[in-house]
Design a binder for these strands. Sequence first.
DNA 1: GTGGGTACTTTCCTATAGTTAGTGCCCTCC
DNA 2: GGAGGGCACTAACTATAGGAAAGTACCCAC
Lengths: 134, 134
Amino acid sequence: MSVSDQVAEGSPPNFPPNVMDAMCPSRMILEHVTSRWGVLVLAALLDRSYRFSELRRFIGGVSEKMLAQTLQTLERDGFVHRDAKPVIPPRVDYTLTPLGREAAEQVWALARWTERHVDDVRRARDAYDEARVS
Amino acid sequence: MSVSDQVAEGSPPNFPPNVMDAMCPSRMILEHVTSRWGVLVLAALLDRSYRFSELRRFIGGVSEKMLAQTLQTLERDGFVHRDAKPVIPPRVDYTLTPLGREAAEQVWALARWTERHVDDVRRARDAYDEARVS
DNA sequence: GTGGGTACTTTCCTATAGTTAGTGCCCTCC
DNA sequence: GGAGGGCACTAACTATAGGAAAGTACCCAC
């Protein structure tokens, strides 16, 4: 067994990383950052840090469970930093890490893009719907 | 009742569009383009058009049902163009519209970014996991 | 004539998301 | 001084979304 054989066997079958491969870890990371609430958490934290319930009020429609779950996932992936101060009442601040900031800038750009193109999509939907009622 | 009152009442309560508002249409559009399979469909179609089952083979792990559903949603939103040739066997080509291309460029950039940072995330996860087994 | 390919749709079942209620501790209100 | 609310969660339950598999209808190759 040669050295190159050892490397080939020891390394995962995901080189180079490819999101189109269901087994590639990059697929799961992409799912975390593009998840329903992940996108909004990252976008929110881009301009400042937030406390848990402050974030919950800012992001309309998110449940406490899903916000906590999303924040834990993003923290584990190294996108979000959780700063818990041992005071009463509890105070926990969430901030972006440098890695999280890079991701957040991209999802924020996408969020702003959709906000700008709401009317384009509405027109497309009207045309689509009208084409099949006839 | 003044004219400004009429405008305020007649227009939807979503101006300017804001993804943080659960009721804003931009929220739903963002969910479509960042959906689990929407991201991958847009990214795939960026470099060329695909037929249905070609796309299904290219995007690992997608079911026929979810691919059809995702394509219909993206078509209705005006991101994807469906070109069905009335031949036997059926031939349907999916392409991006100009609007879809703009969205696809952004999600593709995000996909490539995650592929490049797989190792950073893996390290963050190892550190996170090790911090709570002790 | 059996198997495979095309592009889907339908049915069924499970996994995931969301809703609700509970935790423990503190502050403010009247 | 008891009621209500805020803080940051967690646990249990339920509704909905997602995935597996089969069906459709037609054709071609072997």
